[in-house]
Amino acid sequence: MNASEPYSAAVGAGITIRNLTVTYHTDRGIFPALKDVSLDIRPQTITGFIGESGSGKTTLAMAIMNAIRTPGLIASGSIYTDGVGDVLKLQGESLRRVHGQHFGFVFQASSNSLNPLKRIGAQLLDLGRSHGIKDPRILLKEARALAERMGMDGDRVLTSYQHELSGGMRQRAGIIFALVLRAKVVILDEPTTALDMLSQQAVLEIIRQIHEERGLTSIIITHDMGVMAEIVQRVVVLYAGRVVEEGPTQDLLQRPRHPYTKGLIDAIPRITGDLAEAKPLAGSPPDLATVPTQGCVFRDRCSLRRPVCDLVEPLAQPAHGDGLVTCHGVNAHD
């Protein structure tokens, strides 16, 4: 399975983001966590959001679900998703229903998203009740099937407390929570960050298989280009709240256009080949408070910096066929 595989655009839930700006209001001032983001997330594909901490990748995912909390605020923009409409117009009960039934969110394995005092099964029933599921048996049956699908003992998982599960199992339990209400869009926040390599590969493989079987639209948030390369069909590269490059994974890996994307790829220590080719990425991750308000936000770490970068923020231009790149230093025609 690879990026060039065709998908049917008519089924599943696509997401259309237009001019999305999210600001954070703190004692130190108002900072844009996302600035004027326009993006199409194709139905039934696995899309990856990649960037360092502070790039806005998690904020973007939360905004898609209209789940930004104070001090964050969605300042402007629209997010359409098939079958729901503009998510940003929803509120209260209808928004709550969309979470879970349309969007499934899988928390980081390292975060304590599960209640430590309740068995997994009991928490699933709570989730079902809050979404008006009449028959809890159907819910548990579905959960058990999912658990077994992921190579676990269904009954054992449902009767376990969080601390009785390993990191990899906890992550799989998170996926059960996200999918048990038959969500169409699944968002996974750093699904493998706290896991070791073997569990990481196993979890990625499971995500890929379930994505295929259910015809999901999946979004994976990560800072690991390796994870991207393994599983994702389209990559969205974020830097300081801007989409700097977007395109099909293979083409983006082979021919990165934005110097930041190139830096991220070069910074991967490789298992084979010449070690001297790996180059550390210069500078520090962006800090929202110190990001320049004028010109290109990446210029201080950039190898292609030129005078125009100090003055004008670059606009998105087409790249990778149907993708885009946001940089003054690349020529749209090459």
Partner: peptide, 26 residues
């Protein structure tokens, strides 16, 4: 071999090893 198989493959830049395998279960 399982541990080494688990190192992510940068598809497009690398080809997976011919004997790669990853145990899925816990």
């Amino acid at each position: 071999q399982a541990l080494l198989s688990a190192v992510p493959v940068l598809r497009g830049l690398e080809a997976p090893g011919p004997d790669r395998y990853i145990p899925l279960g816990e």
